[in-house]
């Protein structure tokens, strides 16, 4: 087996194993840590596909931001370090069956579909190219979504503060 294929199988098996552990473990803190490992392995998959910038963004935003946020909120809201209650078996069985059938259906569609071959020469996705395209208002530029997303982030930040703000009780 080639060494590159071996790394792919290693990374993808880690993604799937930690993903399954994230949604099945009964301890909520372990679930957050398994989520952390899943996200790191997804970043490793981006490195494997030579998308270094996306991998860096994944590590900074997900691993450094979202998982830490989730851990903080667990500390704020989880009273006892007990196990989560096990869901009723009907819900488990039906969720498992529906997910398996949906997965089989979707993947069969992908296997049957013949994807078009791309004959054009690939471009080099350097960080400077990404930055120029992000602020390019011409053909193929992304300045409008960039500005919309920046407004959305501002709105989300203000909204978070407004929602989580502790209102003083009238004495």
């Amino acid at each position: 087996m080639e060494i590159s294929a071996f790394f792919f199988y290693l990374i993808s098996s880690m993604i799937l194993v930690f993903g399954i552990l994230t949604v099945t473990t009964r301890k909520i803190f372990r679930s957050a840590i398994y989520l952390l490992f899943t996200l790191i392995n997804v970043a490793a998959l981006y490195f494997y596909l030579n998308y270094e910038f996306i991998a860096a963004v994944q590590i900074v935003v997900y691993v450094g931001g979202i998982v830490v946020l989730i851990l903080f909120s667990l500390f704020l809201t989880h009273q006892v370090a007990g196990d989560l209650p096990s869901p009723p078996w009907q819900r488990l069985v039906f969720a498992l069956l529906s997910c398996l059938f949906a997965f089989g259906f979707a993947f069969c569609l992908v296997m049957k579909h013949s994807f078009p071959e791309n004959k054009n020469a690939p471009i080099n996705l350097t960080v400077s190219y990404i930055g120029k395209q992000m602020l390019n208002y011409g053909d193929g530029g992304f300045v409008l979504p960039f500005e919309v997303v920046s407004i959305l982030l501002l709105a989300a930040m203000i909204g978070c503060i407004a929602i989580a703000f502790k209102t003083k009780k009238n004495a």
Binding site: T22, V23, I28, T77, P87, L92, A95, C99, F103
Partner: peptide, 26 residues
């Protein structure tokens, strides 16, 4: 695809809001 449906399974079975959020992240 497998990761997506693992997340969907977690979203359907969990009832704790933070673990549901983790499933959505997956």
């Amino acid at each position: 695809f497998a990761l997506f449906f693992i997340g969907a399974y977690g979203f359907l079975t969990r009832r704790n809001m933070i673990t549901m959020l983790m499933a959505v992240e997956l």
